[in-house]
């Protein structure tokens, strides 16, 4: 044996099969139902947006890896594809592809690579890209079209939450029905319309143990309690928690955005605080803020606290306080 190649390595010598690319590809698979529903409801527009975002993300990532003289294999770990897909899922279908490309470049360059690439970014890159687009092109980002299944011939269309916020939908009784919200037959971003598809994907991720179950559960609980209190107090003015959970970007945020491993806390207690905070801020923005939707900003806001949470929610070591 001494004349053969001997591998000297530090223990442990066994290794679990899971790896970063496997995790990333699991996330991509879990997005499949939402991608298919978006293709079904928005057809060609959805396809163009998805393709342009993914292509722009991959190109930007490759460019930065090349400039930083990093091995190009990280390009294939799937994280750039996920950012591209997630970004596209949060864009309105009527957005022109060149704007989506700008968003994707910003997401990868400013959201991820300037911090040092995968694992070092503070904010969820897809949401950074979306926040940039939202602020840079507010009109284009708030122009909605109905899905192809809606047999109404109008050019612009309000999202269920926009309808709620600006059109006083509760009093007028024009609130989007829960059934439409659940199956996705409504206006909104590519990936947020169908609650069913998102729940399927989220359950797959939970089952595959890719995401921390505490985060979706915590967000869910805190939004339900927050909106529930207001709803019970004044059902004339406020909508039910179920509406708030099914409408807007809540599900895609809770299952796919907030759970991004890199930008969520690593400690169990930290994950709870983070998740409860997100749910609460979503509720506050939806009820009292200037925007109809608050999932993106609340996740980005809580992202900033993650390093702090990681530091101060450190788990208690077995044996407690150190002796001596």
């Amino acid at each position: 044996m001494t004349d053969k190649i001997i591998i000297l390595q530090s223990s442990p010598h066994f290794k679990d099969k899971d790896s970063v690319p496997k995790i990333m590809y699991a996330v991509i698979i879990s997005l499949a139902p939402a991608i298919f529903t978006s293709l079904y409801f928005f057809r060609f527009k959805a396809l163009v947006l998805l393709l342009s975002c993914v292509a722009a993300c991959l190109t930007t990532e490759a460019l930065f890896l090349f400039l930083r003289r990093k091995p190009l294999h990280s390009l294939l770990d799937g994280s750039a594809i996920i950012t591209g897909l997630l970004l596209a899922m949060t864009l309105p279908p009527s957005l022109s592809p060149e704007l989506a490309v700008i968003g994707a470049v910003v997401a990868m360059a400013i959201g991820k690579q300037v911090f040092g690439g995968l694992g070092n970014n503070i904010f969820n890159p897809a949401l950074v890209g979306r926040a940039f687009l939202q602020t840079a092109f507010p009109v284009a980002m708030t122009t909605w079209i109905p899905s192809v299944m809606t047999k109404v011939d109008i050019l612009t269309y309000a999202t269920p939450l926009g309808n709620l916020k600006f059109e006083n939908a509760v009093a007028q009784g024009t609130l989007t029905s829960l059934k439409d919200l659940f199956f996705g037959n409504t206006g909104g971003c590519l990936g947020e319309t169908s609650a069913l598809a998102l729940i399927l994907g989220g359950l797959f991720l939970l089952f595959r143990r890719v995401i921390d179950w505490r985060i979706p559960l915590g967000i869910f609980l805190s939004l339900t309690i927050f909106t529930g209190i207001f709803w019970l107090a004044n059902p004339e003015k406020y909508t039910s928690p179920l509406f708030h959970i099914l409408a807007g970007g809540f599900l895609i945020g809770a299952f796919f955005m907030a759970t991004d491993m890199v930008t969520s806390p690593i400690t169990p207690l930290g994950a709870w605080v983070y998740a409860l905070g997100i749910g609460l801020i979503v509720g506050l923005i939806r009820f009292f803020g200037g925007f109809p939707e608050g999932v993106m900003y609340s996740i980005l806001f809580m992202n900033t606290f993650v390093p702090l949470l990681n530091r101060y929610t450190r788990p208690r070591i077995l044996g407690g306080r150190r002796k001596g």
């Binding site: 970063v20 995790i23 694992g119 890199v262 806390p265």
Partner: peptide
């Protein structure tokens, strides 16, 4: 197997 940078999955904890 390639080494990637930590993605903060929290599994080690």
């Amino acid at each position: 197997r390639l080494e990637y940078s930590c993605i903060h999955c929290g599994r080690c904890i």
